[in-house]
Design a protein around this nucleic acid. Structure first.
Lengths: 256, 256
DNA sequence: CGAGATCTTGATTTCAGTCAAAGCTGGTGG
DNA sequence: CCACCAGCTTTGACTGAAATCAAGATCTCG
């Protein structure tokens, strides 16, 4: 199996692979190293056991699996998903460079969701035990770790907010503008990017069916908010989308 | 205003009010002190600045307010809610003795939701700065703090799961059985308890309208799953409710 | 006791889901 | 190089679950 080949390559002896250098990573502002001085950052680099390549559709970790490490996305995109008893999956998030994965498992020692690469990707593996030791010694790292965890709580709350009381078109508009904002924070265009996930994943995230997603995207396109072919998205009217997401006016009201 | 009076009373000099004693609190297993030895627990007690009474409908903290402390519920019940642009509120959770409130604000320094007492309640205020100092010195406290934060992430994910892909009756069944389980963990009856929140709050939590809640409760009652008058709930058929929550069979299938 | 808040019930509407079919697209092999 | 196939996406017709609108009933508390 090709997967195995890749794994072997990625877990080659440390000498063959350069030690990850947080200081050189362009996403360190968004990640654990934020705010660390050079010495602290170096100590953090030391405990990152290795980089790991994860190819498209491969699982980084799976629901129920024992927890040992956190993973920082270096490159590529992931989705995290929970599966309920009947096999339907709720996508709990999409994750890009600088995001930290696996925190939900700290409490129980078992992952409560699985993480799957949406494209060929790469993560830094951070053994949690060693991170906790370091966190106790480096106050600024501890603060940042707590901020990152809290950010995750807030992100989940925001998901609950839109799942609980936004209409379908609001949810989608919010998702598109949020993705743009996240790309902007990483120095990419907020208005022009690829959707790395399938329509099905979008539906699973927003609590909607694939058909609804398709119809909504068509509607947005016709209204001139976006242009889209396949997965290449361009936001043409950000303010309009934001208004829609905020529910500031129903689309029908425009005619009046 | 009576609120003011209460506040003054609750912030009386420490001598007038006994220092909170985590060791004596019957909910410490569920809270930060879990797993601490006597010395560590004593140090934790030292930083708890005071107990604070919060009367019914009073806010413990509000959305946008600056963050300084976490709060452990000692007594009573709270709801946390986010309000969107149009004034609709999404209830993000119900909280009872042993639960920790305010963690979502660690990342930004501002509360992203407000917490309101559902009945006259009491909390332990834990200044976050001092907690962080102590956490760095007491590894077991650090571990427990991380577990508590991770538990919160998992809780929010579970909310997203049911808001995203469960039907109305499943959501309500899950909420009732979960409440029962939480009471059980606190040594109370899992099958017989008071709903401390209004129908409107239930609806706000489950992403449903008040009318739907009312109809569903009537349906559950007629089906013999529960008995209910006003807010006094008794779960008569836990297995049935759990099956319903898990979607193991549609209610219509019974006849067939 | 009475007024306002909370809760219940019924009739109707609507948004999104389901079912069904057809169109793309990108990868594979002849 | 092109044809074909499987999976993904779009579109349409219909259905259904929950929202909305509208009375009433009941509870709470001054």
């Amino acid at each position: 199996m090709t997967t195995a080949t890749i794994h072997i390559a990625s877990s080659a002896p440390a000498k063959a692979q350069p030690q990850p250098r947080c200081g050189l990573c362009s996403f360190n502002r968004l990640c654990l190293p934020q705010g660390l001085d050079e010495d602290a950052m170096h100590r953090l680099e030391q405990i990152i056991s290795r980089r790991r390549k994860v190819q498209r559709d491969e699982q980084l970790f799976s629901m129920g699996q024992g927890f040992g490490s956190l993973y920082a996305v270096r490159l590529g995109h992931f989705k995290t998903a929970q599966v309920n008893q009947r096999g339907e999956q709720q996508i709990t998030g999409f994750h890009m460079a600088g995001d930290l994965l696996g925190m939900e498992a700290i409490g129980t020692g078992q992952h409560s969701c699985s993480a799957v690469a949406l494209e060929d990707s790469e993560v830094c593996e951070i053994p949690f035990g060693r991170l906790q030791e370091l966190v106790a010694e480096v106050p600024e790292l501890m603060h940042q770790f707590h901020r990152v965890m809290a950010r995750e709580i807030q992100r989940e709350q925001a998901v609950a907010l839109f799942l609980g009381n936004m209409r379908a078109e609001q949810r989608l508009a919010l998702m598109l503008t949020s993705l743009g904002a996240r790309y902007a924070a990483r120095g990419f265009s907020p208005a022009s990017f690829q959707l790395r996930m399938s329509r099905e994943d979008i539906g699973g995230y927003l609590g909607l069916t694939i058909e609804s997603i398709s119809r909504l995207l068509a509607r947005f396109r016709k209204a001139g908010w976006i242009s889209l072919n396949n997965r290449d998205l361009r936001i043409l009217d950000l303010a309009g989308l934001q208004d829609l997401a905020a529910g500031r006016f129903a689309p029908e009201c425009e005619a009046a």
